[in-house]
Design a protein around this nucleic acid. Structure first.
Lengths: 236, 236
DNA sequence: GTGTCCGATTTGGTATACCACGGCGGTGTA
DNA sequence: TACACCGCCGTGGTATACCAAATCGGACAC
């Protein structure tokens, strides 16, 4: 109970979140408060607080009286991609109007620092770099609500996005497309920037779904719960 | 400890939420866990759980170690309106593609049931009817992520939206604009539907901001905390 | 009169005991 | 053998005691 710098709750939340995102806790896995209490060496109070936050983020869910790690849901992935297209597309249009050249340059510098993608790092790093880029880009809109929405969607997608950037070629493509969006933004070309960005999101999602479909059997073999794709045609 | 039908936590959450949305708990008001425990006759555990959920919804915030009811923030209102334009505009375009005639008719029936707006009810009822309409409309997209985003934005806006529908004329205008969107949707005219909807959202927001600016002094007199509008870099 | 220091009080953070409910298994009976 | 009942055990839900930190007040010294 030393409470060194941050509260137990925050630390526990971070650790649980990391365990879920790294798939150490498998999608669909049942969680018990007392089990987590033992695994993470904390009492139930912070465990419950962390679960509550993760529930709000969509990373865990209630099932009956209990908890599970949110399964990977192909329908949800598609829905989140559509949401991202709408929000990020609008955000980049706002950025064309509002972002200063210096702000755009800062994001470009960030992108350059990450390298052309095929040089640096692994898939996990690619996911983080991509997520950072999209969040920074959204931030240029000056609209915090949009940033939050984008970040939330990226979080819920984080467990699967690495599938799409496994190969250096895929990371290089993503990097190029990010670069093209920034160029259009820098040229204050809203239509091109928005179209490039939404096309990038859509293409990424398509490749992700393809990879997921191909890997579903293998992933299930690893204990991952993958929900079938019930296409978004029917409301409710 | 009777636990009649729903858990203490859920009931407490509902009551706290209602108190905030009805302005019984004023924006900016400081909340203490032990004070709420006493006011709502529950123990701190469900109080903390409810505060956590409300925090995730943006209805309360942490300030230092404590809690406050989220102040009314003009910048946030504008940002949420922009977010709604992006998401609802995209949603209605998806609805044009995906919603069945029967589903559209169901929403239209709901709208008709609410009446032309100037007949039925007060401002509070107008807010609820409007919120329901926008949520149902988003649901026609078949995209739950968009529905959640819209609902979240409407929730965070709920405390101020009544200002915009105080007069029967304003409610009638909103009803007409809703009706026009549905007509365009029914005609499968995506561009018109989206333009009408985003225009409606923008117009509503403009009138809301006008009303808020006019009433700020009076509202502050009632103890409401209104944050100044630090515009997101450039007006529309 | 003013500034500083110290302590009491109040706060959120945490640990834990207790409760009711529900599922599972064993046992007894038909 | 099959089925029904009953009780144990594990679950999340709740209440509460205790802790550390922050704040506020007063008293004292200058």
């Amino acid at each position: 109970m030393t409470n060194v710098l941050a509260s137990q709750t925050v630390l526990l939340y971070d650790r649980l979140r990391a365990a879920i995102l790294s798939l150490d806790l498998a999608p669909g896995e049942r969680l018990t408060e007392r089990g987590l209490e033992a695994s993470f060496d904390a009492s139930r109070t912070p465990v419950r607080a962390a679960l509550g936050r993760l529930d709000a983020e969509g990373l865990v869910q209630r099932v009956g009286r209990g908890w599970i790690v949110s399964p990977i849901d192909l329908a949800e992935i598609g829905a989140l991609a559509e949401l991202r297209e709408a929000v990020e597309g609008a955000a980049v249009r706002l950025a064309v109007q509002r972002a200063t050249d210096a702000q755009i340059a800062a994001v470009a510098a960030l992108l350059e620092a990450a390298g052309p993608g095929d040089l640096a790092g692994d898939a996990e790093q690619g996911v983080r770099a991509g997520g950072d880029f999209h969040e920074q880009l959204a931030r240029l809109s000056g609209n915090p609500a949009m940033v939050d929405t984008v970040r939330g969607a990226l979080t819920r997608l984080a467990r699967t996005r690495w599938l799409e950037v496994r190969t250096p070629a895929a990371r290089a493509q993503a990097w190029q497309e990010h670069r093209a969006v920034l160029d259009a933004l820098d040229a204050r070309d809203a239509d091109t920037a928005a179209q490039l960005l939404t096309g990038h999101i859509r293409g990424t999602n398509d490749r992700l779904l393809t990879a997921l479909a191909a890997d579903t059997r293998r992933l299930r073999g690893h204990g991952l719960a993958i929900l079938p794709d019930t296409p978004p045609t029917a409301p409710r």
